[in-house]
């Protein structure tokens, strides 16, 4: 397995720390005039998304993490696993609930997602930045009210609930920004 020394650390590098795959976010060289050199490193745990800070003695090494990002198409969910396919080689991947995470609520089928693989299995799923979904349930629209800026909850065909403007009707298609989970516009 490849190892990286502190002087090779740079942002984006994938390494193993405490048995979890991490991505280096920031690496700062810290050395007093007289005394040991250290590297103060910020790492994002790719399983939990949490950013941690760790200080290494310069020259310490970490093992590389076998982490890869691929573009795949969402196929379906059987309730426990979310299934994806790499359209370039028809290779299939199954993500568990933990890996599918927040992305799951935006997927209905055929979306192109980014899946992060660790040792060949999905670690996390990122939905497309924007998805278009149909509203299956919301209070009746208030006609003409496009200015007051009020919102109401709407349930989407995937089960996700988002806040929409009062004028949006049941059955309409709307565009959602999955990074913030917020309504962007009507899509129809």
């Amino acid at each position: 397995m490849a190892t990286f020394s502190t002087n090779e650390f740079k942002s984006g590098l994938k390494v193993m720390l405490d048995n979890d795959p991490c991505a280096i976010v920031e690496n700062e060289y810290v050395k007093p005039g007289k005394g040991q050199a250290f590297n103060r490193v910020k790492l994002r745990n790719l399983k939990t998304g949490r950013v941690i800070e760790r200080t290494f003695k310069s020259g310490e090494t970490l093992n590389s993490a076998d982490v890869l990002e691929i573009e795949v198409q969402y196929l379906y969910s059987d309730g426990e696993l979310w299934h994806f396919m790499d359209p370039s080689n028809y290779e299939q991947y199954a993500a568990d609930k933990n890996a599918a995470g927040e992305a799951a609520q935006w997927l209905k089928g055929e979306e192109i997602c980014t899946v992060t693989l660790w040792n060949g299995s999905p670690l996390s799923v990122t939905a497309p930045n924007f998805v278009t979904l149909q509203i299956t349930e919301t209070d009746p629209g208030v006609r003409g009210d496009t200015a007051t800026g009020g919102t109401k909850p709407a349930t989407l065909e995937t089960g996700a609930v988002v806040k929409v403007p009062l004028f949006v009707e049941n059955g309409e298609l709307i565009k959602i920004d999955t990074r913030t989970g917020s309504y962007v516009s009507r899509a129809s």
């Binding site: 007093p32 250290f38 800070e53 760790r54 200080t55 290494f56 003695k57």
Partner: peptide, 18 residues
């Protein structure tokens, strides 16, 4: 957040101070 690989007394003291 110091790496567990640092064990030497003076290096530890240096780290904590700096």
């Amino acid at each position: 957040g110091l790496s567990p690989a640092v064990e030497d007394y003076n290096e530890l003291l240096d780290f904590v101070f700096n």
